[in-house]
Simulated assay, not measured.
Amino acid sequence: MNFYIVGKQQSTINYLRDIIERDFNNTIVGTTSDPQEAFYDVMRLSVDIMFIDLNLNRKNGIELIQQIQQNHHYPHFILLSSQPTDEEITKAYENGIDFLIRKPINKAEAKSIVKMAAQNIKMSNRIIKVLDLVSGAETNANTIIVSNKTKKKENSYAILRFLGINGGV
């Protein structure tokens, strides 16, 4: 899995980098404290999972998530926050985060969430392949039609709900 970390503090970025690279043999494709740099990086890089701090300079994490999604990029989002309000939590989930990790970061919790997010992606990809086979659509492993990605994601979540798997929803 390819990860990108947007954190306000370098110590948080380093801590997450250590968890991701050592324990899960994944790749960090970028890190920054600048939300605009993160946006440009995500537009050009292959990012599966993004860690985003809620409180960034010049923009909050939810605004960054909205900006990324408005440009038809849909990585999985894990939000980081010290003391989020109930309103911020609700808004974050409404805007597509998969998980919220409260700071200070608990290493065991972060490892578990990274593992669940990766499993959700793998399961969603399998379901998308099944849907493609069932629908008779021709697929190319290197090509994803962005306009269909949202629909496929919704169908995948519907199947996961039907199967009683709550982690993907």
Rank of each mutant, 00 (worst) to 15 (best):
I52R: 06
A38L: 06
N106F: 00
A108V: 09
S11Y: 08
P35F: 04
N95F: 00
I145T: 13
Q83K: 11
I97P: 02
Q10T: 12
I105H: 13
T90D: 00
H73D: 03
N25T: 07
Q67H: 03
T139I: 08
S124C: 10
I49H: 01
V114K: 01
R102C: 08
D98G: 09
K91Q: 13
Y74P: 01
Y4R: 05
L100D: 04
N26A: 15
S46D: 12
N60A: 08
L56C: 02
R44A: 11
K152C: 06
I68P: 01
A92L: 00
Y157E: 12
I165K: 11
K107Q: 14
G61P: 02
D23V: 02
R17H: 13
T139R: 10
L131R: 12
K107T: 14
Y15F: 15
Y40H: 11
I105Y: 04
T27L: 09
I127R: 06
G167A: 14
L100S: 02
I145Q: 13
D34Q: 07
F39G: 01
N142I: 01
F99D: 10
G7A: 15
S33N: 12
F39R: 08
I68M: 02
E138L: 09
V169Y: 13
N55P: 00
N166R: 12
L133C: 09
M43N: 07
G136W: 05
I128T: 15
I101N: 08
M1F: 05
I128V: 15
D98W: 05
I49K: 02
N57L: 07
N57Q: 11
N120L: 05
N120R: 15
L64N: 05
N14A: 13
I28M: 08
N106P: 04
N71P: 00
E94C: 06
R22D: 10
T27A: 05
L79K: 06
Q119P: 06
K115G: 02
E109Y: 13
M50Y: 02
I78S: 05
K152L: 05
N125W: 08
D34H: 00
I52G: 01
I121D: 08
